[in-house]
Structure formats: structure tokens, C-alpha cells
Amino acid sequence: MPRLSYRKALNRALADELARDEEVFLLGEDIQVAASAVTAGLLKRFGPERVRDTPLSEQAFTSFATGAALVGARPVVEFQIPALLFLVFEQIVNHAHKFPLMTGGQCAVPVTYLVPGSGSRTGWAGQHSDHPYSLFAHAGVTTVVPATPADAYGLLVSAIRCDDPVVVFAPAAATELRADVSDPVPVPLGRGRVHRSGDDVTVVAVGHLVHDALAVADELAGEVSVEVFDPRTLYPFDWDGLLGSVARTGRLVVVDDSNRSCGIAGEIIATVVEQVRLHAPPRRVTRPDGAVLPFAPALDRAVQPGRELLRHAIAHVSKDG
């Protein structure tokens, strides 16, 4: 079976959708030379009208995409750096997201925002290492964080076909992954996936942290039976899927690369405890409040949610109750 890399999966999703639908086009900085690799080969195949390099004008090209979408196009906007989403938060949340309701249903804004390298990229320091997916979930913008090559392909395809704006975070820590995928298929938005079944604790892991959760679950296999639930889409969240898991295990840990306050982990825990009586208080492993990733590698790692804290949290919820 062919090995598909995460980056190649994103590239293939873009190529397949460009080929399938004339209304799809790409917009972004240095995408013609594929500086972030995911647009490799697309200029040659689809031409400069549909693979458009932009000047460094994130706010204007984000709203340019909104305007194009308002009249039926399906733009995909690439942002090289996750922090650029802070710069265009207004254009996405206050415009793209709000247009359908504010116009009383006169329009749709089917834009995909793709960040092919979100979260820490060791050594990129304070302004290039954020993981702001919880902001978009909070705003009610469809938000996906694929953990695997198959999901990277399938969720990006579904994002492009979705009639609403969708932000796709491809965690830098996952983009080197490869998997055996012969024929990737669309993955529905809003549907989680149980990567590993277990009976004692449900661990919800977001994005690249799915792989850390799986590794920890393997290590603990003799002591605790851990179920690893990957929501894949953070908004809309697969509450039914998660509640089904937690109803069986009765214990919950969330590992999330957001800052702690108002991060998606808090929302996941709140929603679960509103509906399920757990055997033990739930735990979350996150970045600290107000995290700014320091440059030195040891410091960078120190503020990211890691396996040791996850093991600790699992041990904690397992012994309580």
C-alpha cells in the first residue's frame, strides 16, 4: 500500500478539488513556488489564475476571498504562519462568518483558510508558534485539526466543499507523518474518530497530540485501558461521539494545544460534565495561561502539553472516585 505523507495528502486534496470544480482557486503568499510545500506542482497544472500569489496583504486578500465567495467562487486561502490569523480575525469572523445571517440568507461564504504548519515549529519562537483554533471554535467558525494523512486529505476536501467558511489547522508536529493510504476519501466535518478503544479513561486529543495520546495509551496498556478520541473537527464538535465514549468510561482527560483559559479543553469538559456524571473530576493538559512560546527548545517544549503531564492526568483521574 502506498505511503502518503500528511503534506502530500493536503496537496492531493487541493489538486483533486481544483480539478473537480472550476470555482475553486488558491490564494496566498509564495504558493506558486510552494514555500510551504502543500501547493507543489499546482501552478504548472492549474495556472496562475487559479494558483494566485498575493502581496503581503493578508487583510485585503482574505476579504478578496470573501467577495469572490459571495458570488459563487470557492477560494482556499493559505496562511504560512498561524499568527496571521490574528491579523485577519476580523475579516473571517466579522465578515465571512457573519454575512449569511446578516443578509438574511442571501449569500454563502464558502472559503477555506489553510494553515499548513500550525502550533510550535521548534525554533520559530513567540510570533510564529501559536495554535489559535479555539478562537475560531469560540467564534463559531467551522474548525478542523486533522491528525493523520487520511484525515488531512478528507477534511480538507470536505472543507472546500462546505458552504460555510472553514479553518483548517495542519499542526506542524503532524505534517511529517506518513501513513498507508491508497485511496483517500472525504471525511465528514463534525465527526470524531476513536483511534483506540479502551474501557477506563477517555482521552480527547486534538491534532498532533492524538499521536502522543496513543503513545501514552500504549505505555499504560497494562495498567489502564485508555480510549483515544480524536474530535477532528472542533467546531461543530462531535458531542454524540464523545458522550458515547465517556458514558462508558466515566473518566475524562483532554489534551489540547490551546492556552488554558477559554481553550477548547475547557469547553469539552464543561459540555461533558453538564451531561454525564463522571467517576472522578476530569483533567485537562494544555498550554499555560497566556502562553508565549520562548525560543530555546527546552523552554518551547516546557509550555507545550506533553506526554508526562498527560500520564499524570490519566493517573489522577484513574485513582479518584
Binding site: A60, L70, H95
Partner: peptide, 15 residues
């Protein structure tokens, strides 16, 4: 805010 939006809309329809 309108300038970039109308620019995108006109570009997409002219395409």
C-alpha cells in the same frame, strides 16, 4: 471593509 470584498467579487465574476 468593502473595497477588498467588491474587488474579489468582480474578479471572480469576470473570471
Amino acid at each position: 471593509a468593502g473595497g477588498a470584498i467588491v474587488t474579489g467579487a468582480v474578479w471572480a465574476r469576470r473570471r
